[in-house]
Amino acid sequence: MVMLGLLTPQTRGVKVFIKAFRQTNRPRCSSVSCHSDEYIRRFISDNTEIVGDQSLTPEVKLRLFTPTCRFWRERPELWPFEDPYWAIYWPGGQALSRFLLDNPSVCGGKTVLDLGSGCGATAIAAKLCGAAHVVANDIDTVAAVATHMNFELNGLEPPVCQTNNIIGSQPEGFDLIFLGDMFYDEDLATSLHSWLDRCIKTHGTKVLIGDPGRAQFEEHRIRRLLHQLAQFELPESVREENYGLTCSRVWCYRPEL
């Protein structure tokens, strides 16, 4: 699941929203046990807006939160699911998706895992670039439904969506693993570091990371093992509500460094 950190244009209101409903004591039901996929699809359709032009990847359309959406202002206790991190197009994911679209040979014909896939933008970019097989992994089941909807919105067959926590599990043989905005917590960063090492050593997997420079990323020891591949200046509309954030970068994880 993609988590809060430095924010994209739509997120200041969402940050307030998430902070507010975390303070409510109402138990939340899981999307699997309480709601059908049809209900979730209808809910997402009714409570998001199709956007794209304000991001680094205007050719990719996504259903996201905007100020025109109901839950931008609605009482948080009425939200029926877990925190809606899938409804934000985070800056690390934007950079990673832009890099793939600019360099389609990176994933052409490859098997790809988009870890912490959120709205599915990077998985979409991989598929648009000719990836042979795409798996989107996010522990929020609502994110899986949103990813399916976003693939369909872009005229693509939906990917395989996994909602189990695979960090720390036996690595599968993916050619590529993509991580956008996953280094928001030091403990998670350490777990990722160990697991990614195993993926690389076991299968020779190539790992690409998108991050706008969060402290947990810049200060972690994994940072010394990364080679920068690209830097993207964020659009003005993205900068306005990002507390000084102006760019986002793509890195290749090279543990031999």
Rank of each mutant, 00 (worst) to 15 (best):
E59Y: 07
Q228M: 10
N150I: 00
I167G: 00
R214Y: 10
R221H: 13
G180I: 05
D197H: 15
T24E: 13
I18V: 13
H193E: 01
T147H: 02
E74P: 09
V112C: 10
D140V: 00
M149D: 06
E77H: 11
N137R: 07
R22M: 11
L64V: 09
L188G: 00
T202A: 15
S33C: 02
W90N: 03
S105L: 09
D37I: 13
V106D: 02
L78M: 11
E157S: 04
S237P: 01
Y243I: 03
G244F: 11
A215D: 11
E152F: 08
V14L: 15
K15A: 13
P91F: 06
E233A: 08
T57E: 00
P159M: 03
C34D: 11
F71P: 09
K127Q: 15
H203P: 10
A20M: 03
V250P: 04
S117F: 14
V106H: 02
A146Y: 11
D140W: 13
A146C: 14
K61E: 09
A146H: 11
E77N: 04
I40P: 07
Q10C: 02
R70M: 09
P58N: 04
E49F: 07
S55M: 02
N137W: 05
C107T: 11
E233V: 06
N25F: 02
L101V: 08
P76I: 10
L115M: 10
S105A: 15
A123S: 13
V135C: 04
E38D: 14
R239N: 03
V145N: 02
V142R: 14
S194E: 13
P159E: 06
A144T: 08
H227M: 11
R26T: 14
K110C: 10
G155T: 03
V160Y: 11
I50Q: 07
W79K: 04
A215K: 06
C107N: 05
V142F: 12
P80F: 12
C69G: 00
V207I: 15
R239C: 03
R12Q: 06
W72G: 02
V145C: 04
Q162C: 05
G120F: 12
P158D: 07
V60I: 15
D185H: 14
G52F: 09
N150M: 01
T24H: 14
R12C: 01
H203G: 11
A143I: 13
L226R: 03
I200H: 07
M1V: 10
P255I: 02
A20N: 15
V238A: 12
H193Q: 02
P58M: 06
S237F: 00
R221C: 05
T11Q: 15
S248Q: 01
A131T: 06
F151A: 00
Y85N: 07
